Simulated scan of single mutants.
Amino acid sequence: MKTFKCFAPAVLPFIFALSLTLSIPADAAASMQWSASQQAAVDHATASDAALRSKLGSLYSTFTSLQSQLQQADQSISSLHYKNEDAQSSLTKQIKVIDADKIAKLDQAVKQAKDKYKPLLSMYTALNQQITTANKLKNKQLTSVLKAQADTMKIAVQIAKADIKNKEQALASAKTKKTASQKKIRSILAGADPLRIKIKAEKSTATILNKNVSPMWKGVTQSIKVGDAKKINNDLNTLVSQLRQIQSQKQKILTLENQISTILQNAKTQLAST
């Protein structure tokens, strides 16, 4: 009796170690390969039908290949997902501190200018209050003397106020620019939110599909036990179709994660240009 050499027990177990919510339970996955006794039963069931034996051999090869492809897809999704999460976290932190050093220096410059000119401005204010009091007392001589002193200080006071105003305007301008930059980058990042919602939906669909895999595999093994070659072929074909659907879901998820990665890169580029 001929055997299917391609059905060697060395086939890698179907373990989706990194797929998280997408994975088939490890105990079910580990059993998704034909044992030596099951291989013997398949050989016996197809002994009189070479065409079916070849078809089943090709189908089983596709089945094992799909398992490997799904495992690789899980690893790619997991790797890209965590890379995107790290990038998102890093960008969020960087956005908060845009121009932080510049604004801190400008704020300090305003405070220093106010401290520097405080004695002058306080003196000028007090002098004008004295002028007001002298006017009320109708003391023309005192008023004249005080106004002369005020006129002497006026230019210095104007310079001081202009200096403070310029520094305050520079600070306000920097804060406005920071807010605008933050808004623009956050707007770019917001483009990833709908994609994350789609990923959640695709994962949910994949989870539902995965729940049927273990029962389907049990159906295949039962067919092998009965020795019905056609049923083995039909059941395995149904299982392969199920794995293809799961593969399609994983590809959708990977595509969405790549789209998120592009958005994050765009946000990073925009951040670098601020």
Rank of each mutant, 00 (worst) to 15 (best):
S144G: 12
P9N: 12
N266F: 01
S79Y: 11
L171F: 13
T274K: 06
A104V: 12
P194L: 03
S173A: 11
S31L: 15
K55T: 04
G219N: 14
P9K: 06
I159D: 08
M123P: 05
A190H: 13
A170Q: 15
K147C: 01
D107I: 08
A113W: 04
L256C: 01
A8G: 14
A109I: 03
S187W: 05
T255I: 01
K178P: 03
Q75Y: 04
F16E: 11
N210F: 04
T179E: 13
I159C: 01
L137A: 10
S23F: 02
R186T: 05
L18E: 15
I103P: 04
A267G: 08
I98Y: 12
S273I: 08
K184G: 04
S223W: 01
K225Q: 15
I260E: 14
L189A: 07
A28I: 08
A229C: 02
L20M: 05
F7Y: 06
Q108F: 11
S76E: 03
D27E: 13
A87E: 13
N166K: 15
I246Q: 00
P119W: 06
K136H: 15
Q270H: 11
S65R: 09
S78Q: 12
R53F: 00
S241H: 06
K114G: 05
L22I: 06
K5Q: 12
N234G: 04
A134W: 11
Q259E: 10
H81R: 15
T179L: 13
N233V: 00
Q245P: 00
K140C: 02
K165F: 04
N237Q: 04
F16A: 04
W217H: 09
T205C: 04
M1D: 11
T176W: 02
L171R: 09
A229Q: 00
L20A: 15
Q251G: 09
E257V: 11
A267Y: 03
T21E: 12
K105R: 15
L120V: 07
Q251D: 15
L91E: 09
D235S: 11
M1H: 05
A174F: 07
L80K: 08
V240A: 10
K102W: 03
K161R: 12
D43E: 09
Q69N: 15
A100G: 09
L243G: 10
I197R: 10
E168Y: 10
Q112I: 10
A73L: 07
I155M: 14
K200G: 09
S68P: 02
L127Q: 13
D86A: 15
T152V: 13
L171N: 13
L12W: 02
K175D: 09
A180G: 03
A26N: 06
L209G: 10
A104N: 14
Q245M: 13
A170R: 14
N258Q: 15
I253R: 02
I197A: 13
T21L: 06
K102D: 08
L127F: 06
S61N: 03
D99T: 02
A30F: 09
Q38Y: 03
V42M: 00
K252M: 08
S76R: 07
A192Y: 07
G227W: 04
S173C: 05
